[in-house]
Design a binder for these strands. Structure first.
Length: 255
DNA sequence: AATCCGCACAACCGCAGGAGT
DNA sequence: AACTCCTGCGGTTGTGCGGAT
């Protein structure tokens, strides 16, 4: 598994993409697709490395990219998924149609910074946060409510209203210690994205997942049937899930 | 009005792992 | 089995913008 040599050739352009480059890349991919990213820039006549082209396409030029502000539901989804999955941005992105992992990662890091800052200031009342975003990502929420938006409070542990996990907010579950990627990708994340989209702001994300799509822990039908319409806030539920998972003999033990 | 500062976003970098030979 | 190539992912950095001073 060697490392891909990338961009070390002299003459390859780096930095922000120009409109012309975007046009060239877009038109080329629309005509030929992108079977080989490495060869693409040469064939398309771009002085970029394939990696850069792929990134530009997937994060910006793709026609299904959803631009603009994150909705409250999307933010809630990110928060919940991050709580469960950690920094698996690509997996999180699969549940947010039109959003890229890079975008989600950026959003989260802004949350995270604020959370860290808020932790340092203990449990003071939410400080008024100045909005400086050039895209005013969260201005809408701030305009309608003095209460901190999730982007302001940002901390998973500060979620309250619908944050059922908040009942256990001081127990940060380290899923990585006993679950591997396949579990999440095959189980929770097998959800139809439409389910997420249909979720109302007050809809509990996890109930959406579990209620409308079958769990795929094929070897455990009991588990499959037990948690339909379950609520994420039921800590007994999660305890039960995790204990059952640990009982699954076929799961690889990487640890 | 000018400067400073912080935020948000785009893009880059390096690594890991799958696929092909 | 071993090697190389390619792609995907996550962390990090650079830059521009806009609010604050």
């Amino acid at each position: 598994m060697g490392r891909a040599p990338c961009c070390e050739k002299m003459g390859l352009k780096k930095g922000p993409w120009s409109h012309d480059e975007d046009q060239i890349l877009t038109s080329y991919i629309q005509q030929h697709g992108h079977p080989n990213w490495r060869a693409l820039p040469k064939h398309a006549g771009l002085l970029r490395c394939g990696k850069s082209c792929r990134l530009r396409w997937t994060n910006y030029l793709r026609p299904d990219i959803k631009r603009g502000n994150f909705s409250r539901e999307e933010e809630d989804t990110i928060i919940h998924l991050h709580e469960m999955l950690g920094n698996r941005w690509s997996v999180i992105a699969t549940n947010l149609p039109g959003r890229t992992d890079n975008e989600i990662k950026n959003v989260w890091h802004t949350f995270l910074k604020k959370r860290l800052a808020s932790q340092e200031t203990t449990n003071d009342a939410p400080k008024k946060h100045k909005t400086k975003s050039k895209h005013n990502l969260h201005d809408e929420k701030q305009a309608v409510s003095i209460q901190p938006s999730c982007s302001e409070s940002s901390s998973v542990t500060e979620l309250t209203a619908d944050d059922s996990l908040g009942t256990d907010k001081h127990e940060e579950i380290k899923h990585d210690t006993f679950l591997d990627d396949s579990f999440w990708s095959e189980t929770i994340l097998s959800v139809e994205v439409d389910d997420i989209e249909q979720a109302t702001p007050t809809t509990n994300i996890s109930s959406v997942w579990f209620s409308s799509s079958p769990l795929t822990l094929n070897e455990n039908k009991d588990l499959n049937n037990s948690y339909i319409d379950c609520n994420i806030g039921n800590i007994d539920l999660w305890y039960d899930i995790f204990t059952r998972i640990e009982e699954l003999p076929e799961l690889p033990n990487k640890f």
